[in-house]
C-alpha cells in the first residue's frame, strides 16, 4: 500500500517546461530517492507537494487527493533554512511551535534528541556558530520532530564536503533503521542514493520525466565495502550509465526534427 502516489504530474513556469510527466509512489516505511541532473526540476516537485506551487496531474496521500497541504509532510529545504536569529534549540522546535505547541512543551520534546543528533551542548548556540554538518543535523532534527507522515529531504548533504557527507549518510542510514520514516530524498549523488534507498527514481534532464525505477535489494545495515560491495557498485554503474548516456528526451521541445 503506497502512502504517496503521483500520477502524471506536470509543471511549467511560464513557457519553461520543468516537470514533463512524473508518476511515482512511496510506500509506508520506505526510503525512496529521486536522482537527477541539476536543474531537472527536483526541488520543483517538492514545491508542488508542499503547496508552494500548483501543477497539473494527480497527487494522492493514503489514497486521498493531496489538497490539504502542510499536513502530511515534514520538509527539509535544499539549504538548511535555519533561522540565523534563533538559537539551535528554538530552530529545532519551530515546526512544533507552528503546530501550536507551547514553547516549553516543544523544548521538552526536542531536548532529549540532541544527543542522538550529535548536537548535545549546542542548544544555546546560534546557527552561525555551528559547522556545516552540525547545521544539517539541526535542520534534520527540526524536520523529524514534527512527526509528520512523511519526510521530504531536498539534498540534505549537498553543501557538505565529501568526508562529512559520507559520515552523515552513515548516520542517517542508522537513524532511519531505528525510526523507519517514510521518506523521499532528492539527491544528485549516486552513491548516496544507493546507500540510503530502498528504491531510486532516475529523472531525465529538464523537462523531467522518470527514465528508470531501480530497486536496491541490498541488506541493511548498509555498509561501504564488505560483502555487498560488488552488487552496490553494479547498481551505481547502472545508474551512472543512465545519467551519462541519456536517451533522447521524448518531452523535450527542442527535438532534432529538422535538417
Amino acid at each position: 500500500m503506497s502512502r504517496l502516489e503521483l500520477r502524471h504530474v506536470r509543471k511549467a513556469f511560464g513557457r519553461l517546461d520543468v516537470l514533463a510527466d512524473i508518476s511515482l509512489s512511496v510506500g509506508a516505511g520506505e526510503f525512496v530517492s529521486m536522482l537527477g541532473p541539476s536543474g531537472a526540476g527536483k526541488s520543483t516537485l517538492f514545491q508542488l507537494l508542499t503547496g508552494a506551487q500548483h501543477g497539473e496531474g494527480e497527487m494522492f496521500f493514503d489514497g486521498t487527493p493531496l489538497d490539504d497541504h502542510g499536513r502530511h509532510f515534514a520538509f527539509m529545504p535544499q539549504r538548511d533554512a535555519l533561522m540565523p536569529w534563533r538559537r539551535i534549540l528554538d530552530n529545532t522546535t519551530l515546526g512544533l511551535e507552528v503546530q501550536g505547541i507551547r514553547r516549553k512543551a516543544a523544548r521538552a520534546r526536542v531536548a532529549p534528541l540532541f544527543a542522538e543528533f550529535g548536537l548535545a551542548g549546542f542548544e544555546r548556540h546560534f546557527p552561525a556558530q555551528l559547522s556545516g554538518g552540525m547545521r544539517q543535523r539541526a535542520a534534520l532534527l527540526r524536520t523529524v520532530v514534527q512527526e509528520r507522515d512523511m519526510l521530504l529531504l531536498d539534498e540534505p548533504f549537498g553543501a557538505l564536503d565529501a568526508l562529512t557527507r559520507t559520515a552523515m549518510q552513515r548516520w542517517l542510514e542508522q537513524m532511519w533503521r531505528r525510526h523507519r520514516w517514510t521518506a523521499l530524498l532528492i539527491t544528485h549523488d549516486v552513491r548516496e542514493a544507493v546507500f540510503l534507498s530502498d528504491r531510486i527514481y532516475v529523472l531525465s534532464a529538464r523537462p523531467a520525466c522518470i527514465v528508470r525505477e531501480i530497486k536496491v535489494p541490498l541488506p541493511r545495515p548498509r555498509s561501504l565495502g564488505g560483502a555487498d560491495a560488488l552488487q552496490t557498485s553494479a547498481i551505481e554503474a547502472e545508474i551512472l550509465d543512465i545519467l551519462l548516456n541519456p536517451e533522447p528526451n521524448p518531452h523535450s521541445s527542442k527535438g532534432h526534427d529538422h535538417d
Binding site: T50, H69, G70, F73, M76, P77, A81, M83, V98, L152
Partner: peptide, 19 residues
C-alpha cells in the same frame, strides 16, 4: 526556502511574517 518551509509546517501569512 524559509517561507516555503514555514508554509509546509502549516503557518499562515501572519505567522510567516512574524516568524
Amino acid at each position: 526556502e524559509i517561507g516555503q518551509m514555514l508554509r509546509a509546517m502549516g503557518a499562515g501569512r501572519w505567522r510567516v511574517f512574524l516568524l
